[in-house]
Design a protein around this nucleic acid. Sequence first.
DNA 1: AGCAAAAATGACAGCGCTGTCAAATTTCGA
DNA 2: TCGAAATTTGACAGCGCTGTCATTTTTGCT
Lengths: 338, 338
Amino acid sequence: MRVRLEDVARATGVSPKTVSRVLNEEPSVKEATRQKVLAAMESMNYRPSPAARGLAGSRSFLVAMLYDNNDNPASTYLAEIQDGVLDSCEAHRYSMMVCPLRMRGKDFVRRVDALVTDHHIDGVVLTPPLTDNRKLLARLQEHGVAYACISPVRHKDVVGVFMDEQKAASDLVTHLVGLGHRCIAHVVGIADHGASRWRQAGYKAALTAAGLAIDPQYIVQGGFTFGSGVVAARQLFTLKRRPTAIFAANDDMAAGVMWTANEIGLKVPRDLSVCGFDDTPMATQLWPSLTTVRQPSREMGRLAAQQLLLQLRGRGDARLVQIPYELQLRASTAAVPD
Amino acid sequence: MRVRLEDVARATGVSPKTVSRVLNEEPSVKEATRQKVLAAMESMNYRPSPAARGLAGSRSFLVAMLYDNNDNPASTYLAEIQDGVLDSCEAHRYSMMVCPLRMRGKDFVRRVDALVTDHHIDGVVLTPPLTDNRKLLARLQEHGVAYACISPVRHKDVVGVFMDEQKAASDLVTHLVGLGHRCIAHVVGIADHGASRWRQAGYKAALTAAGLAIDPQYIVQGGFTFGSGVVAARQLFTLKRRPTAIFAANDDMAAGVMWTANEIGLKVPRDLSVCGFDDTPMATQLWPSLTTVRQPSREMGRLAAQQLLLQLRGRGDARLVQIPYELQLRASTAAVPD
DNA sequence: AGCAAAAATGACAGCGCTGTCAAATTTCGA
DNA sequence: TCGAAATTTGACAGCGCTGTCATTTTTGCT
């Protein structure tokens, strides 16, 4: 029925162990032998049994993508990252599991234990805000499970991928300033997310650099959701000196801001400039199309997984890769008229 | 280190095989024994090794969610279904893998072979348009892999979940007629998708029922993407008798239509009513919010997986579940003024 | 009470691979 | 040319569980 390693061994005239060595790319196999075995594997269409490898060996060739689905119900962001991770996994014949975790709740870390123990996971890709959960990281280390992070807050001794979000946010706000805006508000994301911190810091840095004061009234809390953008915008619109531009910490909230602007009859960008962050598909689908910062989620997923696999396969130095950002200046921002 | 089945057996004073029986919910175990074993498992925090179970037994407790990622790059629709499938899997201690498949290309079916053979997959959840790929279904049957379908075209001998999309579309268009619209256009989805066929059929049925003629000019081809909605709308807007309402076969295309309306200065819903289908998150985030049909993707994923597991666990009759639709009448549709 | 049938349990091999360690082969310097 | 070291290969056990089949215990009936 199934072609087993033993079959390949017999066909090649070597021992099963040698075939195993070839399969696992172990060093001490004579080149001629390796070629013979490889050829036999190919022609017999041999495919190793993950179950057997996992059971017998110390590796499972399984990686998991972990995410917090308290704050992230089925977002495009995660779907794209997942696609990227999958890409890298397939390239190296690893399999991927997706594991939503509810970061709130006591059994959160135990879920990880279960996962890791059950499936013998070799490594995980962590998405924010899991990337900086101390307990989680500690637990993974205890289990000897490697991990790569996407946009982690702490960069020390971490492998993965990140973007200079603060600089990007700063550039974006500087662009608003360049358009003549002086009253620029900011809708903050979920408090303890790195993304919120960096984007807010960038906002402040740009204002300061432009010699503008930072008005606490112009900084309102949001939660990365469309709805929270609506709430924040309503609050901002009641201010006596209404902002002429609003920088929302992500596209969803920016969409909420634009929606609210429409609701009260403000015309974007004539009466109000709006910009977001992430460049989700929605950004180009809104009217007017949204000025934002491109964050290539899929590529980030791919790179993070790539670094993780580098580590797992003992192939040289995995590192924290920086990925460039890109401003997307579109129709939702314009010069302030006077 | 790890708690094994044997450890539980020793602690309980029974043979490993009996513990195995309890684990697999086999019938012939005395209730008292079962309870003892269950208690021991619990207190020892025993978790079976999926690798060992897969290797030794005939089941892997693994299901895969298959989708075609040629036409579906990282959509919310799939992400939600995935969430739902995951829900059901976890409820029954099954694991899930996600498997993008490129339906174009020769090795498409071989990818499935690989998947199934490699991981010994017990069953798969199929999403459109995979649900009706004859070759795929045949191959799965050959492999003895059970499957459940989400919105399959053919309903005969199929397990899974579906909605009466034709009726829903018809209701929606009837609603437009009720608002006084007589020139109602339709943007069709990808040609061979069931969704496209049903929605178009519903459109036609509603017009016919209302005694309105079906004008081929008012039916334009789209591809389920925002961009294709834009293209379709531009085409419709050049017509001498411009439609007063456009029913797009999904929300993405409806968003494209609305975007294009904005582009040429048409005000929705004053100058044009627009409606979509699916009720993606975007529907409420557009301005004006989109009239559409609610399709509970997550619930559908959950139900499909549930039926699949019913089948896998030999628990009675899995079937094709019908799920009710729900019209979401929002701000993008209004009475035609005269 | 006694026996056949049914129910419950156990012994044992083996799923397909890898880790350990020993054996065979090759390489290389003197 | 020979021996020690390095390289390459192989034998074998066992990972944690389940399938098969044998054995023991219980049940139901006369």
